[in-house]
Amino acid sequence: MSYTFAGIDHVQLAAPKGCEARARQFFTDLLGMPELVKPESLRSRGGAWFVCGAQQIHIGVEADFAPAKKAHPAFVVQNLDALIARLEMHGAEYQLDEALSDRKRFFMEDPWGNRLEFMEMEGN
């Protein structure tokens, strides 16, 4: 019997207790990701879920939270310049990175210090 990986359903990022309002401000208001309603059976755990293309971003509460400074998700964006303009309009900080010649990308931190990468392949 063989199997194949079909993709990634979601990426979970950790955040401290009480993170929900800041998560909504960042992922929905700033980045423009719609929020998903968490299943009733998981709501008591806190956190929030967001739509990112065909995948989801889950913000999960971690009791002894420490931000991920190296490990990170990389979001593929169509029209990265428009996202950069939106971030600049809101005064959000980000760092452009030109280390890879086949893509335009930048890094930023979520409200809790987790590293996030946003990229667009050149020619797209």
Rank of each mutant, 00 (worst) to 15 (best):
R105D: 04
I8K: 05
D97K: 07
E35H: 01
G123L: 04
V61S: 03
A71F: 09
F106T: 05
V11Y: 06
P39R: 08
G123D: 05
R103P: 01
L100K: 12
L87H: 02
M108V: 02
L100I: 08
I57S: 05
A66K: 10
N124S: 15
Q12L: 12
A6S: 13
P67C: 06
L36W: 12
N124R: 07
V61A: 02
E40A: 13
S2H: 08
Q25R: 12
Y3F: 13
N124P: 01
A48M: 10
P67F: 00
F75V: 11
L96I: 05
E40P: 00
R105A: 02
A71R: 12
P34H: 03
M108T: 02
A99E: 12
G113L: 01
R115T: 04
A14W: 07
V76E: 15
P39E: 15
C52L: 12
K70M: 15
Q78C: 08
E93W: 00
A23E: 02
A15V: 09
D29V: 07
S44M: 12
F65D: 11
E93N: 07
S2G: 07
A82D: 12
L13F: 09
M121E: 07
R22I: 05
N114A: 07
I57T: 06
E35G: 01
I8Y: 06
A68T: 08
A14C: 07
F5I: 15
W112Q: 06
H10T: 01
A99H: 05
A23C: 12
Q78T: 11
F27I: 06
F5K: 07
L116M: 05
G123I: 03
F118A: 03
A21R: 14
E62Q: 14
A14S: 15
G60N: 10
A54P: 03
H72Q: 12
H90K: 09
F27D: 00
L80C: 08
F27L: 13
A63V: 08
A15S: 14
N124A: 13
